[in-house]
């Protein structure tokens, strides 16, 4: 018999390292005389899209096209220390570092432009620098870069963003341990085959407070990816060992979902501005994954009236749950 159920999982999650642990990121910008920009960061983009967001931030601050930026990341030979790529901190800490660096560079260029244009209310937008009150007083960003170079002003800027927080009270454990917190809730709808123990996830609805979606498509994709990882955690992933040897040492044995196992995922982005975040943004990475397993397992409980305590909720464990027997290895 096939039984359906619905379950929810909610989470909040401290972003960055918290508890007075060092949480810093540096970022470097270098401008060439043709106006092209070389950005350097120690953060690693392993598919989550931080490179895209960093370039967006620089383009936004300097009013230049995204394509004018060449970003070099995660090469200890040439990139500065930006702290580890973890704790859902890249957009927040690395992004803030690029805002600071971009504004320092802009201040230098702004000084040169004020001198050339004879105006002090300058706007950097769409590759142009112009006076707000007298827009005919203008110079292209590229030309400005060349003039600045000719004058020998600093062309390389490095800034440092410190996200280190206060520790909590050692006696009471009370305090504000993290710079900010991420919030997310997911709903799962499942169908359990009571005769085989197979759990099929039919639908996931994910609602995540991202602060501000700097790149909405990127946020959605990251949440979808997190959900898929969470599905693997709930239903498939298992390390088996025998006599000290791992028996599930390949991805043929250690199961993660394939594209055919992925249900409909409905993503909703909530934008609750975080004042400390870059343009109000928070991290997305881990909050995307955390609510999925509890949502799925609560849905299994809703379907069966039984709570599973042994993961993964795979064929054997679910079948034995239904039939009241202890699972095998």
């Amino acid at each position: 018999m096939k039984k359906r159920g619905i379950g929810y999982g909610s989470m909040f999650y401290g972003l960055g390292y918290g508890f007075s642990r060092t949480d810093i990121a540096s970022a470097t910008l270098e401008i060439s005389q043709d106006g092209s920009i070389i950005a350097r960061s120690g953060e690693v983009d392993y598919g989550q899209g931080s490179d895209t967001v960093f370039c967006q931030i620089i383009a936004e601050e300097l009013g230049v096209d995204y394509s004018a930026i060449k970003l070099i990341t995660a090469d200890t030979d040439v990139t500065p220390d930006s702290g580890p790529t973890s704790a859902s901190r890249l957009t927040f800490v690395g992004g803030n570092a690029f805002i600071k660096t971009s504004r320092s560079l802009k201040k230098i260029l702004n000084g040169v432009a004020e001198d050339i244009l004879g105006a002090s209310d300058l706007v950097f937008r769409e590759g142009m620098v112009f006076s707000r009150s007298a827009p005919e007083k203008s110079i292209s960003f590229k030309k400005l870069a060349g003039r600045a170079y000719a004058r020998g002003v600093p062309a390389v800027v490095t800034e440092w963003y410190n996200n280190t927080t206060q520790d909590v009270d050692p006696e009471t454990g009370q305090g504000d341990a993290y710079a900010t917190y991420c919030w997310a809730t997911q709903m799962a709808e499942v169908e359990v085959d009571t005769e085989t123990g197979r759990v099929e996830v039919l639908r996931i609805v994910a609602v995540t407070d991202v602060g501000k979606a700097l790149n909405p498509l990127n946020c959605e994709a990251q949440i979808e990816g997190g959900v898929v990882q969470g599905l693997g955690y709930a239903l498939e992933e298992e390390i088996k060992e025998e006599g000290g040897y791992v028996k599930t040492g390949t991805l043929g044995e250690y199961m993660i979902p394939t594209s055919l196992d992925i249900p409909t995922i409905e993503v909703h982005l909530l934008e609750v501005t975080e004042p400390k975040g870059p343009y109000g943004a928070k991290g997305v990475g881990e909050p995307a994954l955390i609510p999925t397993p509890p949502a799925v397992l609560n849905a299994v409980r809703d379907a069966l009236g039984l709570r599973i305590h042994k993961l993964p909720a795979n064929l054997e464990n679910v079948y034995h749950l239904i039939n009241g027997a202890e699972a095998g290895n």
């Binding site: 197979r198 498939e236 043929g252 199961m255 394939t258 594209s259 055919l260 196992d261 795979n314 064929l315």
Partner: peptide
């Protein structure tokens, strides 16, 4: 076929 996932899976 009963398997642990819908593709790339050894049959259970």
């Amino acid at each position: 076929k009963l398997a642990r996932r819908q593709a790339m899976a050894r049959s259970r």
